[in-house]
Design a protein around this nucleic acid. Structure first.
Lengths: 269, 269
DNA sequence: ACCTGAACACCGTTCAAGT
DNA sequence: ACCTGAACACCGTTCAAGT
């Protein structure tokens, strides 16, 4: 802890948009969304606010760039993500789901690639819990800004590879992306609140507490949540997340399967 | 336009948390998220900031209360929502999807109730475009605050009524809620950006412009989005939204159907 | 118990001035 | 072209004081 981000050191390197975005991500990671201010940024970069505004139009653009950088990294890490997931998840659980009666599906099937993309984003929130919130904010700022299309595109390509009829591409890709972003956001929030409420306590204990809180809800108003509280206690985040992906994938597959008994709506013609 | 929110008029009514939240919603609706400030609020309510802080802990709590009020209204409007939706959607489209080969399904089936809940929230964004963003922000503030559980519960009850095996309740309800919130957010953003970019132009022209922008993306980087751009031009928001709901419903139904050919993962035991 | 409103700390952003 | 840093407008929040 001798040379801890000495500002005199940094001063030598030239300021650039890239370095600013990098510093913004670091600040978001370590100090949270409220920790990213222009003053904190200028201190970290040893400059004045004017210098930052030379490279970046405003705070929103900076936030978008930070979000974009992290998402791009997560999507690029696709192949590695699966291995990492296997490593950090409960080995017993993983083995169980791997060996059981899964239908024939090639190792690099579109399904697997979709899971890999999803897992890449899911994993990114561990280091960047602010990601889902910023994705939502960016969506509201500019719906078809740069980040969402990246995710939509990478998922969409696999949807196409899945053999989904063209008329359903948009619907199928949207359903997957929305599920992924929603579940990712939910999980980031859970993590954050686990850390905030009890920083020293581990995840399992937090889930236990949360599940108890659920069980104490008014049975008349919240019968379902109460009933589901028990499941919550012993659920594994990654497993749950994957189960949701597979559920949506099942729905998508049904769009072009011959015997379409589960369908509730006609194709869009 | 004679007596337009005269402050002297209001002064007579006593200040209350309810009235503050009501004013906050109005401000959000008319002036957007950046328009809701304590100064604008004090002016509208003809008080000082201290008075507001007597009834409300801080801005986040106020935002949460506003979000909660609007969501509660949307969920309560369930039955009416369908009728309203039928009225404002393109009649030809609706008729088409209504008469065609839909499998036998009672008029008040869980599926229909889920669609009604979803439509209620979907419809609420017309008047309250800030809703999805605030839902996301509230989620990140307190994951199991008051609003999300309300939505989760009402969807969950129908999931149970659907006959989903208990082990999948959580997954099924989560998938639905995430899709609904995601699609709702996407749509709110589209509406907002349509209004911002071209306030005088109607929705169809905006979609046309957006779809053209998509078609101009680099074909090497965005083959899927380009391919899907054409679909986007002639898509109907509500129809698209419903198609996504039905896709997820199909996936859920497959969880407990006898011939489970679409499944890619074993049940959670 | 409920309300007033001046004051405080902090924020994003600007801009004349420097190199 | 790139950077400096004081200054500005505005924000959420506090709190001693009133009724």
């Amino acid at each position: 802890m001798a040379t801890r981000t000495r500002r005199s050191q940094r001063r030598t390197e030239a300021l650039s948009r890239e370095r600013i975005v990098e510093a913004a991500v670091e600040l978001l990671d370590t100090a949270g969304e409220s920790g990213l201010t222009f003053r904190a940024l200028t201190e970290r970069l040893a400059t004045g606010p004017g210098a930052i505004y030379w490279h970046v139009a405003n705070k929103d653009e900076l936030l978008d760039a930070a979000t974009g950088a992290v998402v791009a990294a997560a999507l690029a890490a696709e192949p590695a993500a699966r291995a990492e997931a296997a490593e950090s998840a409960d080995p017993a659980e993983l083995a169980k789901s791997a060996e059981s009666t899964k239908p024939a599906e090639s190792p690099d099937s579109p399904q697997d690639k979709i899971r890999a993309i999803a897992f890449g984003l899911f994993g990114a929130i561990e280091d960047h819990p602010w990601l889902p919130t910023q994705l939502a904010l960016q969506l509201s700022r500019s719906p078809w800004g740069s980040v969402t299309p990246q995710i939509f595109e990478s998922i969409g390509q696999q949807v196409r590879a899945l053999g989904v009829p063209e008329g359903h591409w948009f619907t199928a890709a949207s359903a997957l992306v929305h599920y992924i972003l929603g579940a990712t956001g939910q999980n980031a929030a859970n993590n954050a609140s686990a850390r905030t409420l009890a920083p020293d306590v581990d995840r399992a204990e937090f889930l236990d507490a949360a599940s108890k809180a659920w069980e104490e809800l008014d049975p008349d108003d919240y019968p379902f949540i109460r009933a589901v509280a028990a499941q919550m206690r012993e659920h594994d985040d990654r497993e749950q997340f994957l189960a949701g992906i597979d559920l949506v994938l099942t729905g998508i597959t049904a769009l072009h399967l011959p015997g379409e008994q589960g369908r509730t709506t006609p194709p869009a013609t």
